[in-house]
Design a protein around this nucleic acid. Structure first.
Lengths: 115, 115
DNA sequence: GCTATATTCAACCCATCGGTTGAGAACCAA
DNA sequence: TTGGTTCTCAACCGATGGGTTGAATATAGC
């Protein structure tokens, strides 16, 4: 993995299990066991995913008796959002040019009939 | 790699070379050679990166004589931005709780003196 | 101290990633 | 047809990722 923050963040988000874990954590702290419950995965696997999220700065861990509760820290997502935000004008443009393209298909020649 | 769109998008963004390529493409179409020029990488490597971006739907390719110009298609970024956007309230909250935490450090007991 | 629960560590497996090199394919130009 | 340019394919390589299992650690309760 590349070592910069943005790469770690995007790499962490590239796994659906980890995204689901973040979604769960958005509802509050959770232990490894609670995070593992929706998945058919070993605790060790969840523990590894948690470390990836931790290395990306997306979760922090605490200690409560045997438990190591994880807590969401969404700040790296702000940076990621900023990066993507720079392209916002391009996805509007993409929609526009798609619209233009579709308009181009609306020729009198009606060999295609779908909308 | 997981097969869903969001995972492909985030995985594509997790590599700094690919992010740089997208940045270049935001200034307009570019050939493989033009994309390769800023990097000390073989054409084949750039070609592979382009395919990752293509599979994520982030670039489309054309044909112009020997050239296979690549063009940015930012629409998958809109979806990624939406996903991250769901967490916006949490990164404000993170800043707030950090502020609260730092306030907590401002106790009369001045054993620590850093800000 | 012993035992149960929660979590992590260590070793391993296999698939994928990012890179290379060298051969091939597509296209233009003489 | 021969050659030059641009790009992709195929085979390979070492490193990383996501998963497993089994042993170790940390803590609580008796």
């Amino acid at each position: 993995m590349a070592t910069d923050q943005l790469s770690r963040t995007f790499a962490a988000l590239a796994d659906p299990t980890r995204r689901a874990m973040l979604a769960r954590l958005s509802q509050g702290e959770a232990t490894v066991g609670q995070l593992a419950q929706p998945f058919e995965l070993s605790f060790a696997a969840i523990s590894k995913h948690l470390r990836v999220l931790e290395n990306a700065g997306l979760v922090s861990r605490g200690r409560d008796a045997q438990y190591r509760p994880a807590q969401l820290d969404a700040r790296p997502l702000a940076e990621a959002s900023d990066w993507i935000g720079d392209y916002a004008r391009f996805w509007s443009a993409s929609f526009d040019s798609l619209a233009g393209f579709l308009d181009g298909l609306q020729q009198p020649d009606q060999t295609e009939k779908d909308t």
